[in-house]
Design a protein around this nucleic acid. Structure first.
Lengths: 146, 146
DNA sequence: ATAGCTGCAAAACCTTTGCAATCAA
DNA sequence: TTGATTGCAAAGGTTTTGCAGCTAT
């Protein structure tokens, strides 16, 4: 990928990486780029790996896993386990959103709701917990599905 | 394994199994029993397997997986993926509850809340979905943890 | 009798790790 | 320079599957 100079993602990426205390390396920039450019918001390590291979980047799958795990520690991405087989990674855009998964099509949609947010915090508090994060997955059937 | 006749769990189990269209076999009754008698509500296949071994039942791990998967299809248990490593199975007691997981101790607690329930249904509807199930996991830190 | 169930071992998956070479700072 | 990072291959942990024998109905 002959990438040009004044590329916003590269600059952003470097900044993000540095802010996370990670050395700025090509594999890391690449993974970040793939996730930012992708139309799918939730990607498995394998998905990311394939995209890299397809765009002629030479990165090992193990590295993708390592990088994604580092990104997770750094708070750049979330690791989700919607159905358990494989983990899906998603960029942290600072909006704590929830998911609706269609049982027929498998399509994933997002939403976020302050009412639920507040209520969860309230409930956690009453149970003695300080809520740091929450994950909501609604399973449903879309009216236009299949 | 030499199981007696008038065992309450056996009778209950048999009914559940038959209702699910599954043959009433010893391994299935045993797995059901273990899950019902366990003090822990969330158990991995391995957990169930160990309990069976400990109580002199001769059941293979593969069978435990198969049985649990069948139970899941039959709606008798839920398969959860709190952190991805291994799946945890939980009896379906018809109460759709949510979970709070302590980040320090790993302890899992449950709750359910009609306000959130209603709100989720409402939101799903507005997105074009008919909600069939939902999973909520709150990550937090308990005030008395570690 | 027979379709379904089981145990065992092997395979399939996803993910992590050891190690020598390579790279960013 | 030098510790961090990488690719490869091998190992690890969880779950599934093929198959021959056993079992509930």
């Amino acid at each position: 990928m002959t990438q040009t100079d004044t590329n916003s993602f590269t600059d952003n990426g470097s900044a993000h990486l540095r802010a996370a205390g990670l050395k700025v390396t090509l594999p890391r920039l690449r993974v970040l780029d793939v996730m930012e450019q992708s139309d799918r918001r939730h990607m498995s390590a394998e998905d990311v790996y394939r995209k890299l291979i397809d765009s002629d980047a030479e990165v090992g799958l193990a590295t993708v896993y390592r990088v994604l795990t580092q990104f997770e520690s750094a708070g750049l991405v979330y690791r989700r386990h919607f159905d358990g087989g494989q983990a899906l990674f998603e960029l942290n855009d600072e909006e704590n959103h929830s998911h609706v998964v269609c049982l027929k099509s498998g399509h994933v949609e997002e939403f976020s709701d302050p009412i639920i947010e507040a209520r969860l915090r309230e409930i956690s508090e009453s149970l003695g917990y300080t809520m740091t994060e929450h994950t909501i997955v609604v399973h449903g059937i879309h009216k236009d599905a299949k």
